[in-house]
Design a protein around this nucleic acid. Structure first.
Lengths: 191, 191
DNA sequence: CGGTCTCTTGACGGAGTTCAAAGCTAGTGG
DNA sequence: CCACTAGCTTTGAACTCCGTCAAGAGACCG
């Protein structure tokens, strides 16, 4: 049931069969429909979500009522708002399923107990955080050093199949420009 | 000697006197001159640096030979390239002292041994990473939702004293625009 | 005190936005 | 299973924020 998660953990730290069984006690497997919210702006985030199937995105709204996609999470990624989760403060982000999805849910109020039971998960989540941080830093680097057109080319060649699954307005806001501009890029009207 | 670091750790996890003494064995205290490099592009990052005094920045170069400041680290922040540090891959970033600085250096090849000696440091660094990730996400949020002028106002009201310590061209590249534009903002020539 | 690094100022140019309107697609209910 | 509607995408014209270039004025360090 949570074998995708067990496999993922084993890429980073050892986890024997008995520990995997303990882990299963702590992870709720949840099926959600398309457009279901895992977190809404203003709420305190209650859990960390592991994508088993489908994909989610985190986004926020500006004053002008425009959405900005903050990050995508596909299979084998965790998604949450760590800031809200750990400090129990209201989140500024929405997390929403974009396809019918299957999630492994680690509730915040069970997390400490889980880490006591399986201490090497501290290290596993340290690795997960390091990857998320590296991804965020790469994101900033690309925003600063590439044009909109270049970011689109970079993203669509890096994730050719994923691009098919995302509405364009969502990708545009992720890459930092408008849907109109993305449409013109795709039509070849931009250099 | 490393009391600033011990105090910082104690904000997140318990650390008794004996453990603090053990920690001191693992942390090299290093004084560096202004403009000293802790990491250069193309090198593998060898350590994680805790700022005791002074400040550093991480930056990268684009093809057009322009610098982009990636992040600043002031007193009580850690700075490194986690991606290079953990995966032992060449870094894309430079880390440089911007003032004469005092650092606590945790070498990568001693890190695992330190975590074995003081296991709660795994949790401490998890917290440090969570804060770094939250900061990176806030950064992305501001880049996407505010104009250059707004980002400058936001930064300079959030860190009024720090702004005095940074050359303007460095702040400009951190905020994502040119030094010329920052100069015009400060002259009041931008709405 | 001389040279290099940093900041300022202005004219011009361009990448990307905004607005509006029309075409298209996909989900939903009958 | 079709029709209808809401949401998504395309297109074009006008506009704007900010970049580029260039030249000069400080400011700091050896």
């Amino acid at each position: 049931m949570i074998s995708a998660l067990v496999d993922h953990i084993r890429r980073y730290v050892p986890l024997d069969e008995q520990e995997a069984a303990v882990l299963e006690q702590f992870i709720e497997v949840r099926e959600v429909k398309k457009k279901a919210f895992l977190l809404r702006e203003g709420e305190v985030c209650k859990a960390n979500y592991f994508m088993i199937k489908g994909f989610c995105r985190s986004y926020f709204m500006t004053e002008k009522d425009t959405e900005h996609t903050h990050l995508f999470a596909i299979e084998n990624w965790w998604i949450t708002d760590y800031s809200s989760l750990e400090r129990k403060t209201p989140s500024m982000f929405n997390i929403q399923a974009q396809e019918p999805s299957t999630l492994g849910v680690l509730h915040r109020d069970k997390q400490d107990e889980l880490f006591m039971a399986i201490p090497q998960l501290e290290r596993y989540f340290r690795s997960v955080l390091e990857m998320a941080l590296a991804a965020a830093h790469m994101r900033i680097k690309y925003i600063y050093s590439q044009s909109g057109h270049e970011r689109y080319i970079h993203f669509s060649t890096s994730f050719p199949d994923f691009v098919q699954r995302i509405p364009q307005y969502m990708l545009a806001s992720y890459l930092g420009f408008t849907p109109e501009f993305l449409s013109k890029i795709r039509a070849g009207k931009i250099s």
